[in-house]
């Protein structure tokens, strides 16, 4: 079975390079560490919050604050998994072994996605429980309405960020170019667009802005976002699908 062979091969590829371990490890550590720090700070600041802010205080979302940095490591993971093939010249060897380009690309993405999801799941649960432990009396319980959805959503968010990056890297091929676009975009540009009044209405349809809605349990007071948590995730899925299809179409027609 050709697809099973490709999955096995891609698993060997991904486990045999050190970048996998350090990008995914960094995603986990950074997310948890920053989440822990911000949870402690939020607990100490709670008393100085306004009445409105106290009502919409979202301990779950606060414990996920580390995602803003941790997602960058996920982006690096996604980019490297794909663009390593190009930057090393391995792509020619790989495509000579697996000339069915759809099988090759989606086999690779499937393996990396499963791995990213497992690491995302571990990160999400750990950061939630550690964050809640720091929040003390203000903490949320995993059984509270919407909390489990938000925690699993955190794992999905990380997975989709990695997948989106794989699609972009498949289109751009160069790791430097891909990272040079994705990193500042997700770290700066997207949050600027999403917070400036003039661009807010467009900004919230960007993949990370829309996708992170799934990690919120309580919405801010003046929230007029036209989609819910799953709607936001669907928007992110659409972006990811577009990036992957774009990557596939280019791989299909381009010379290796």
């Amino acid at each position: 079975m050709a697809a099973a062979q490709v999955l096995k091969s891609e698993w060997t590829k991904i486990r045999s390079v050190s970048s996998t371990v350090w990008t995914l490890g960094l995603a986990l550590v950074v997310t948890i560490a920053l989440g822990l720090l911000i949870s402690i700070l939020s607990k100490n600041d709670y008393d100085s919050l306004s009445r409105e802010d106290k009502i919409t205080f979202d301990p779950t979302y606060i414990s996920f604050a580390g995602m803003s940095l941790g997602q960058l490591a996920m982006i690096v993971f996604g980019v490297l998994v794909v663009s390593n093939e190009y930057s090393t010249g391995m792509i020619r060897t790989s495509l000579a072994a697996v000339p069915q380009r759809a099988t090759f690309l989606f086999g690779k993405i499937a393996v990396a996605t499963v791995l990213a999801f497992l690491v995302g799941l571990a990160t999400s649960f750990l950061t939630f429980f550690i964050g809640q432990a720091m929040l003390g009396e203000y903490k949320a319980q995993i059984g509270d309405p919407g909390v489990l959805r938000a925690v699993i959503g955190g794992a999905l968010y990380m997975t989709l960020i990695a997948m989106f990056s794989m699609g972009v890297a498949a289109m751009l091929r160069s790791p430097m170019l891909s990272l040079g676009i994705l990193m500042p975009f997700f770290f700066l540009i997207s949050s600027i667009l999403g917070n400036v009044e003039a661009t807010k209405k467009i900004g919230r349809f960007l993949p990370d802005q829309a996708g992170s809605k799934i990690m919120q349990v309580k919405s801010p007071f003046d929230d007029d976002t036209p989609y819910g948590p799953w709607g936001g995730l669907a928007i992110m899925v659409a972006w990811t699908a577009a990036a992957l299809i774009g990557g596939y179409v280019l791989l299909k027609k381009r010379d290796a």
Partner: peptide, 14 residues
């Protein structure tokens, strides 16, 4: 095709 068409971080066996 090209002796360098491989990932340098991977062992020969892998």
């Amino acid at each position: 095709l090209d002796a360098k068409a491989m990932h340098g971080g991977r062992s020969a066996f892998n």
